[in-house]
Each structure stands twice: as C-alpha cells, then as structure tokens.
Amino acid sequence: MGKRLLSSGELAVELGISRRSISRYADEGLISVALVAPGGRYKFDLDVVRNELRELAEKRREGRS
C-alpha cells in the first residue's frame, strides 16, 4: 500500500504550524510538494517534509541559511 499524501491543512496540523507557513515553505522551495492535485492543491509526504524541515533547522543552527 502506498503512502497517504496530506493536504497543506493536514500537514500543518501534524507539524503544529500554520497552513500559511506550509504554503510559503512550498512556494519558496523549502519543502517538496509530492503532488499537485486538481485545482492546484498541493499534497505532501509527511516523512519527506519532516526530514526537509529538520535539515533546514540544522543548517540554520550552523549559520548556513
């Protein structure tokens, strides 16, 4: 069975951040969009996004933003 893809709202709830932040991060290329659904709605893989945000936080801590 394949992984379930999350909407920006579902992802925001899982990560404890705003939906607007999710959309901004995706638009800025900071997180990967797994699929663009009909109507232009983004779908995300939770595990992939968690890893990307973890790597981004590590880079910022190291001063390499």
Rank of each mutant, 00 (worst) to 15 (best):
G9A: 14
S21M: 07
E58W: 05
P38N: 10
P38Q: 09
M1R: 15
L5W: 01
G40M: 03
G16L: 11
G63W: 10
K43N: 04
A57T: 13
L11T: 01
E10W: 04
R41S: 11
S18Q: 09
G63A: 03
S21N: 06
I22P: 00
R20Y: 08
A37W: 08
L11C: 07
Y42R: 13
S7M: 06
E28P: 06
E58Y: 02
S32M: 09
I31M: 02
A34Q: 07
D47M: 04
S65D: 12
K3C: 09
V49Q: 03
E62N: 11
L30W: 09
A12R: 08
V36D: 00
R19H: 02
S21W: 07
R24A: 14
R61L: 09
N51G: 14
V49C: 09
E55F: 14
S65Y: 11
G63Y: 08
R19V: 03
P38V: 03
L5D: 02
D47V: 01
A37R: 12
A37V: 00
S7P: 02
S18G: 13
R41P: 00
L30F: 06
L46S: 00
E55Y: 11
S7E: 07
Y25H: 09
R64W: 11
R64G: 06
Y42H: 12
R24C: 12
N51V: 15
E62Y: 10
R60F: 06
A12K: 05
E28T: 15
L46M: 02
V13K: 15
E55C: 10
A12F: 11
D27C: 11
G63M: 05
G40H: 02
A12I: 02
S18H: 09
D27T: 11
K59S: 12
P38W: 08
V48G: 00
K59V: 02
R24L: 15
E10G: 02
S7F: 12
Y25P: 00
